[in-house]
Design a binder for these strands. Structure first.
Length: 308
DNA sequence: GCCCAGGTGTCTG
DNA sequence: CAGACACATGGG
């Protein structure tokens, strides 16, 4: 069976390689695989489970625009799929944003300047699915990232669907429809705390009833309104709201200021013995106005330098 | 054994 | 409104 291949042009100032580095930060990640510079990702569109292989096309000449090659390893090619896929990739790699203002601003900041040089072309790698963004954040609250990945792996492999290809399983995140009908004990069995289990199921139920949708959140004009709507959900505090606004709702000024990873990254970048205080971080963030999410993301990226 | 992890909800003064 | 504390578990 022939594999459907399409090539799409990506914006200037986009580094697929840098985004792959971020995606490769955990060996416990179950929602994608990276091999030989290619990204393999299962993806659900209109009820059909697909498998994508994404790779960078080497430029023919410096003048040709940069291309990404998308191969549909599993799934039926169709025009709707091509369209949806473009939208999906735009959100996954935040392609619609012009990074020029961020880079200009970063030149004036001692902390950001070396990072934007080192990771030039890195864009916020998003989580387009609202249910995944919210519940992944909830799972990650107050535990080490590696434990969070372990819990996510159990959750995905227990309640998600998989696409098989060449003897390997490619997993899809569980849907809110599935999770909405779970009991707390179903998740306790995966070492969720009682509270986390309640929060995750609660989010699923709010989405199943369409009380909570990505469209409604995006329709809000003020970022503050979006933030308030999110924190009204049980289990979603300021950190989670900002995380979701940054990773799913594409709000460049979202700022998860309480994030421990952010604190550690700043400590390392500054060469300090202690982590900066919230007051000090607010001071530093004066220079990131409007781009707090990007500053945070570049700082997170700096934590994974030792990983290939 | 103690402290910290990609925090949040609840209670108290 | 700030501060303390429970939640639960893994790793250094």
């Amino acid at each position: 069976m022939p594999v459907e291949t399409m090539e799409i042009a990506v914006p200037d100032c986009f580094s697929f390689y840098e985004c792959l580095s971020f995606l490769g930060r955990s060996h416990l990640e179950v929602l994608h695989r990276i091999e030989n510079g290619c990204l393999y990702k299962a993806w659900m569109v209109e009820g059909e489970a697909l498998l994508l292989k994404i790779s960078a096309v080497p430029p023919q000449s410096p003048r040709t625009s940069q291309l990404l090659r998308i191969e549909l390893l599993v799934g039926t090619p169709a025009d709707e799929i091509r369209q949806e896929m473009t939208i999906y990739l735009e959100q996954l790699f935040d392609w619609k944003r012009d990074l020029t203002p961020f880079y200009e601003q970063a030149k004036q900041d001692e902390i950001m300047r070396p990072l934007v040089e080192r990771y030039y072309g890195l864009r916020i790698v998003g989580i387009p699915d609202l249910f995944e963004a919210l519940t992944w954040a909830i799972i990650g609250q107050q535990i080490t990232l590696s434990f969070a990945y372990t819990m996510k792996k159990r959750f995905v492999e227990q309640f998600g669907e998989k696409v098989m290809y060449a003897g390997e399983a490619y997993w899809l995140y569980p849907t809110f429809q599935t999770v909405a009908s779970l009991q707390v004990d179903d998740l306790r069995a995966l070492q969720f705390t009682t509270k986390k289990a309640e929060y995750v199921i609660g989010v699923a139920q709010k989405m199943a009833s369409a009380e909570l949708t990505k469209e409604k959140l995006l329709a809000m004009q003020e970022p503050g309104q979006m933030h308030a709507a999110l924190t009204s959900i049980r289990g979603v505090g300021a950190w989670t709201a900002d995380y979701v606004m940054m990773k799913c709702l594409q709000q460049a000024s979202a700022f998860p200021i309480a994030d421990v990873g952010l604190h550690n990254a700043l400590k390392i970048q500054l060469g300090w013995q202690e982590k900066p205080s919230l007051t000090q971080i607010r001071q530093m963030a004066q220079k990131w106005k409007g781009w707090e999410a990007y500053a945070t993301f570049y700082l997170w990226r700096s934590l994974y330098d030792d990983i290939t």
